[in-house]
Simulated assay, not measured.
Amino acid sequence: MKTFRIRVDGQAAEAEADSETSLFAAMTRVGIAWPVSCRNGTCRTCLGRLLEGRVRYDIPWPGLSADEKDEGYCLPCIARPVADVVIVKA
């Protein structure tokens, strides 16, 4: 299975994840701190913005508006990479 690089803008550490691993889980594995609460996409504590890359979700419509999705916002607790990702905390 292909793996993708995950980088938080402004931090040196990088994580790797396959398309079945959430961004949050991958970041946690390498010690990158990211706020999270519910871990199911409803509380929005983990809200981030993709500067590069793409993600997918297992649920049809996570807790994001259509405008937020169009503007590159994502929920790392449930977002799975489908390309290399650069993210920043929203």
Rank of each mutant, 00 (worst) to 15 (best):
A12M: 08
K2C: 05
K69M: 15
I59G: 02
R7Y: 00
I59T: 13
C74F: 00
A17D: 03
A15D: 04
L23S: 06
G72S: 09
A90V: 00
I6Q: 02
S22T: 10
E71I: 11
N40K: 13
V82N: 09
A25V: 05
K69D: 14
L50P: 06
A12N: 13
R7L: 02
M27K: 12
E68I: 07
V30N: 11
P60G: 02
K69R: 15
A13N: 08
V55L: 14
E16Y: 07
A83V: 14
V8P: 02
W34H: 12
R56A: 13
G63V: 04
T45I: 05
D58G: 15
R80F: 04
M27G: 11
A83F: 12
V55I: 10
A25T: 08
S37I: 08
P35M: 02
R44P: 03
G53W: 05
P35N: 08
V85S: 14
L75Q: 05
A79C: 12
L64E: 06
R39M: 14
N40I: 13
M27E: 09
V8W: 05
E68V: 10
D9F: 08
A17H: 07
T45Y: 03
P62Q: 02
A79G: 13
D70N: 15
V82Y: 06
A33G: 01
V36W: 10
Y73T: 05
N40P: 01
D67P: 00
K2T: 13
D70A: 15
T45V: 05
A90N: 01
K69V: 14
G72K: 05
M1Q: 12
V36C: 11
F4A: 09
I6K: 00
R7I: 00
S37D: 12
R49D: 01
K2G: 02
L64F: 06
T42W: 10
D70E: 15
T28K: 12
I32T: 06
D18R: 06
L47R: 05
